[in-house]
């Protein structure tokens, strides 16, 4: 279960503090598919970054599977992220010098769980339809293939929470459908809680729970 209580984020700028997120409370039950929607600049990516333990909130707390993320130290939080949260960013977030297989195995290797990491990565890539691309470098793959590698990497640690921030914004419609299909399958088949950040209302319509963010707050 994902719980946010009184979550706020204020950025210090040259023109003074700017509140990106203001006192957000939300709950997403375990295994659910939730979509966070809002216009550009509404604060939805900032909200996702705090939920994912990537950006420290100015106030409030985030609990993932009962653990208060921001009460952990930096290294403990990094370990928690590696073991419990998968990310799909809105850009092709693969390390260009690593093959697809190593990119997928990376979270396990960094977390010191190298035993069987590559076998697990290979199985996931097969599952994503990339069995023939295990040794391919990112530059040798299409945008859709790269995004599928990213999804495989997000799932390699069997996370309880999968966060996807505009995962299809730069893809064509057919590839978008493929990618969303993979994310939804992970949610249904694995029971992974899926939180999708999007400004695409059609995609959000597929979610079981829609959270609308406007001006840094959750709209009622």
């Amino acid at each position: 279960m994902l719980i946010c209580e009184g979550l706020s984020k204020t950025y210090d700028t040259d023109r003074g503090p700017v509140a990106a997120i203001r006192g957000v409370d939300l709950t997403v039950n375990a295994g659910r598919y939730a979509a966070i929607i809002g216009r550009s600049g509404s604060g939805k990516s900032s909200l996702m970054a705090m939920i994912g333990g990537l950006s420290r909130p100015s106030a409030g707390c985030v609990k993932v599977a009962g653990t208060d993320l921001w009460s952990l130290g930096a290294d403990a939080r990094a370990r928690f992220r590696a073991r419990n949260i998968g990310y799909v960013f809105q850009f092709a977030s693969l390390l260009p010098t690593l093959r697809a297989l190593d990119n997928v195995a990376l979270p396990l290797l960094l977390d010191g769980r190298g035993q069987g990491a590559r076998e697990r990565a290979a199985a996931l890539l097969e599952e994503m339809g990339l069995g023939a691309h295990l040794d391919a470098f990112p530059s040798e793959m299409s945008a859709g293939e790269q995004r599928r590698v990213v999804i495989a990497r997000a799932l390699v640690g069997d996370p309880v929470l999968l966060l996807a921030d505009e995962p299809t914004s730069d893809l064509d419609e057919e590839t978008e459908r493929e990618i969303m299909g993979l994310l939804e399958r992970a949610n249904r088949a694995r029971g992974t809680t899926l939180v999708l950040v999007t400004h695409n209302l059609a995609l959000a319509a597929q979610a079981e729970q829609v959270i609308q963010v406007a001006d840094g707050a959750v709209a009622p």
Binding site: G52, A78, R81, F89, L110
Partner: peptide
């Protein structure tokens, strides 16, 4: 961005 990505997926300081 790469370092941020590494941190995001679990790299420690």
């Amino acid at each position: 961005a790469e370092l941020g990505l590494l941190k995001a997926i679990g790299a420690r300081r």
